[in-house]
Write a protein that binds this DNA or RNA. Structure first.
Lengths: 243, 243
DNA sequence: TCAAAAGTGTTCTTGATACACCCATGC
DNA sequence: GCATGGGTGTATCAAGAACACTTTTGA
């Protein structure tokens, strides 16, 4: 740290945006694959220029003056996909020397959790083309973005067990079955319905709402909302969420 | 990502080097504070130049051409403290615009776990002054290094619960009491001796050695070694370490 | 009346916790 | 023979896992 003479790689931010397309939401249609209902999905941008022209890549871009990495991530998310005010967390900084064929670029990656029904790619701003892909059917991505996605997937899988972040992927009102399906698709394992409900309700973080799902040809299910305020209070007191 | 015109902050790496000075090791003497026996410690470097001249700071330095961040961390650790071949993991990338008064510098931080008896600061190479400090008595650090240390401490506390990394801080041969004290000082809580032993031995990852601690004025304790090979095999099979 | 998903309790098993005395050694 | 830390087992309690039937609705 004693010299001003040093390499100046470019600094970029890449964002792994997770969404969840649940069964009974109308916007499941925007998924390309029919079998992708009820599955975790990823927001990708089709590149307009070389290198990797026409390949799918993570949204992202270069850092600007007077902007933190987090602010870069927020700005790019807004510019490229019209997404804002969502869960965003730093993931890992990738620095392999040849990760970009043009020049040296270090990428600080972030991951975001988005309620997909709110953000339809078609409604977005300046990104040439943005689209949700089911995690089960991802295309080969540009640069080292496959590795970044892999890292993010592992992080999400670990994190969702110990922090109540799954709610970020669901609409404000959701059913316990939706919540369970979400957990099942993130964790990749079936769970027992009774035990799941017992556990998740035991924290007292879900408010049961008066309204119910309507117009379904079976018993209507209760809707719940996550009580973020209560969680913050309890978290300070040392609540240990686990599912 | 469609332009070459963008800010080029400098990229540095800062390393939070944790050590553990246990009671019955002779090198406990290098700790300044007498009450620091059996405590987690941190390796700091005294800065030779402005800004923060004479302040204590984390070891670190700027990235070079053809060097990944991890390689930078390894190189600086070697150059500044004579430390190599230790546990090293990326922590977080700090990017506040004003974190360095000279110019914009983004810092990718790492944290390292070191068996302190192997690395006496006095034996190190070109660092002006390197020294272990007890975590209980840290000086105010240069730049935003206090924040980096705080982040690293939380990470260590979480990580040590679910991955057997505590051993990186102990000599190859250690007693169960040493191991327990280590956990207690990282986690900041007393543990039950019988339960601790039961649990830690239940994974079958510790080999009991034939040699014992000698020349102590009480019953000699058995020495153990961590069986890294076995752990790797079991981890692949899905072993879930937890303490 | 049928199909489809919602909702609900109990038993069993497992792991966590709490707890006190004898042992081996050096001085 | 005493001070010091090493080493050990059991009983209780709490949480996790396994498991099947009834309810409500729309068609």
């Amino acid at each position: 740290m004693y010299t001003y003479e040093h390499e100046r790689p470019a600094i970029a931010v890449d964002i792994v945006v997770f969404g969840y397309h649940s069964d009974d939401k109308p916007d499941v249609k925007i998924l390309k694959n029919k079998d992708a209902k009820d599955s975790l999905s990823l927001l990708l941008i089709r590149r307009g220029i070389e290198p990797f022209k026409n390949h799918w890549a993570l949204p992202g871009g270069f850092i600007r003056k007077n902007e933190t990495l987090e602010e870069t991530a927020e700005r790019e998310l807004k510019e490229e996909a019209g997404i804002e005010n969502v869960f965003l967390e730093q993931l890992y900084t990738f620095s392999h020397v040849d990760r970009d064929p043009r020049e040296r670029i270090i990428s600080a990656s972030y991951f975001a959790l988005v309620e997909t029904s709110k953000y339809k790619p078609s409604a977005s701003t300046d990104a040439s083309e943005a689209q949700w892909f089911s995690m089960n059917k991802l295309p080969k991505l540009a640069f080292d973005h496959d590795e970044i996605v892999k890292t993010a997937t592992l992080r999400l899988r670990n994190k969702v067990r110990y922090e109540p972040i799954g709610f970020e992927l669901l609409p404000q009102k959701f059913t316990l079955t939706q919540l369970q399906s979400l957990y099942e698709s993130i964790l990749g394992e079936k769970m027992d319905k009774r035990n799941f409900r017992k556990k998740i309700l035991s924290y007292g973080l879900l408010k049961e709402l008066k309204s119910k799902i309507k117009n379904v040809s079976h018993r209507p299910s209760a809707l719940y909302a996550f009580d973020l305020k209560k969680y913050k209070v309890l978290a300070k007191k040392g609540l240990e969420f686990e599912i």
